[in-house]
Design a protein around this nucleic acid. Structure first.
Lengths: 342, 342
DNA sequence: GTGAAAGCGCTAACAG
DNA sequence: CTGTTAGCGCTTTCAC
């Protein structure tokens, strides 16, 4: 019953089974060089019969090339990142490159560890979220000698290349749209995540633009943990009890915004006349809500695609990308929760 | 400007910089064997100063051990799978093992390709969704000589070990709960995914249990693509127009169920008296809905944890798991959309 | 078209 | 406690 006799097959096994030299077997299996049709068939047949699976570890060491792209993101449960991954995948699928994902939980130290782990596989490129990294991380990235694409943010200085939107600008833009619509008493709800720099920048841009119009956020609250939908609902309830004269609620993400929306609808509040609302991200997950929430698209899938394309071009064709900062423009969607400008 | 002179550092560089043999450097860096504090410090210092990152490719080849666990799942956008990943991660984080994810899009051929790619890295173990695989995939898995854990389903014969719930039983159980509550005219809505075997088994179990009570599904509809929430809403609207006398709606996932719920609420239908509803999965993402949707928890996170634990135990401690089929019991949550049994 | 030799960067196994 | 020697399974390079 014990099949401890098990030894993974090697090129040599295929070589012996087919009576062809290891070298030629290798060539056939990689589709390289000219090999006569006869030998090729012999080799392919033998490989298939044996159930040979090449050893990429050995291949990579010998060829000094690893077709891996390290993708380092803060979280898997944020929905935003799976979408970015989808974009990355869609591009890499057409190539020999393969993504490998690492999760940082928004912690710089963990990012550093994950990065170290990843780099020890000598990937062909790195895609990582954000522009803020520990010094050690930056040093590793710079000296890795591989393309590095920082995604989801362009407010800062990239190590190599950045692809994303300006969250500061996004925050400002939303504030302007809100002001233009005539709202004046604004409440803000967000996640309690000092290390989510993108949320922070959005909020900064937001308050900055309000300040320019002489307005301050009238109330604010930050949550952590739990179901976002439920939290949005609860926070909204609390905030309106605390500060009943608010006429606008800005949420740092669509999910809590949706929770708030459900609460307001239940209370029979007239949206967007009495109270307007807006979120952020444009998750189409929420398309079926009773009212379309005003939001701003972070171009997640596109960001993933572009980042992957840059890596692929660099690795495969040696093409250097000319633009070092690629800023995408988030689309503002007024939905049905932000009244038309007066 | 071209820094093509770049050459990744090797053990030898650290060895030279510290005046210690490569072997000892290797020992220090891996924390193996007894090394005097003095030499250790020398080595660590040199490694840090140089910014040395070990080459795992070479290490893996030399030691014949690769600390990778292949995780093969159908999709990233299903929410279910990111959650499973979270469970897997939480266990593997405490070990030296690292997950590597592959996506199959529910396609057997793609699964085969992804599996082949993964196995060529000689991972220490494989976790993959479902019990249905192509013959070639099964052959590869069997002859890989590594632990294989099939997750999310136990209705079938595992290659090695299976961890999950019985979807057939889950379907039956939901049907029984519905019947017990006195509902009789039942509509079903699901995804158009012939290759989602788990959804299929759930539906089979469901209809089977209904049949036993002499009842058939009165109407059914399957969708594909688009926002699940919106689709749920639309399908529900269509179905109720088509078959107005339905008194229960069973959805193959919570997301479309939530869409349907929002629609019914808007129409002012009395839930669960006039129409009852249920979904599947127990995504706590939806916790904040106006009414808690009846659902059944697929134990996603736990499945991930157990699967990872089995692999970890086998790889690290050589412990063989005694149970080859680990069936978890999905918790039935009646929520507020399934009236109490009469 | 095919093969032989020489490593890739590291670690197992054994000496000292 | 530390160093030496041989590979791991492949691919590169150069012969034939």
């Amino acid at each position: 019953m014990t099949k401890n006799t098990h030894r993974p097959l090697t090129l040599r096994d295929v070589s012996e089974a087919s009576g062809v030299s290891e070298m030629t077997v290798s060539r056939v299996l990689r589709g390289r060089g000219d090999v006569s049709a006869t030998t090729r068939d012999k080799v392919l047949q033998a490989a298939k019969e044996l159930g040979y699976v090449p050893n990429k570890i050995a291949g990579a060491l010998a060829s000094q090339r690893v077709n891996l792209v390290a993708v380092i993101i803060p979280s898997m449960s944020n929905m935003v990142f799976p979408e970015v991954m989808t974009g990355i995948n869609s591009v890499l699928e057409g190539t020999e490159l393969q993504p490998v994902v690492g999760i940082t939980d928004y912690l710089p130290e963990k990012e550093e560890q994950v990065l170290y782990q990843m780099l020890s596989w000598r990937p062909s490129g790195v895609i990582l979220a954000g522009l803020e990294h520990s010094e050690a991380s930056c040093a590793m990235l710079r000296s890795a000698g591989i393309p590095v694409v920082e995604i989801m943010d362009v407010d800062g200085t990239p190590i190599d290349t950045a692809v994303g939107i300006s969250h500061r600008r996004a925050g400002r833009q939303m504030a302007q749209a809100i002001l233009k619509a005539g709202y004046k008493k604004i409440g803000f709800m967000g996640t309690k995540m000092p290390l989510d720099h993108r949320a922070r920048k959005r909020f900064e841009g937001f308050t900055e633009a309000l300040a320019k119009a002489g307005i301050e956020v009238s109330d604010q609250e930050f949550y952590s943990g739990g179901s976002a939908l439920a939290k949005g609902r609860d926070m909204t309830k609390d905030m309106l009890e605390r500060t009943p004269d608010l006429d606008f609620l800005y949420y740092s993400n669509d999910m809590i915004g949706a929770g708030g929306l459900l609460h307001l609808l239940e209370k029979g509040i007239n949206i967007p006349q009495d109270i307007g609302m807006a979120g952020f991200n444009g998750v189409d997950l929420l398309d079926g809500l009773p009212l379309q929430l005003a939001t701003m698209d972070a171009c997640r899938k596109e960001v993933g695609k572009i980042a992957a394309q840059i890596i692929a071009d660099r690795v495969i064709h040696g093409t250097e990308n000319s633009e070092k900062i690629i800023e995408l423009t988030p689309k503002l969607n007024l939905g049905a929760t932000l009244r038309d400008p007066q």
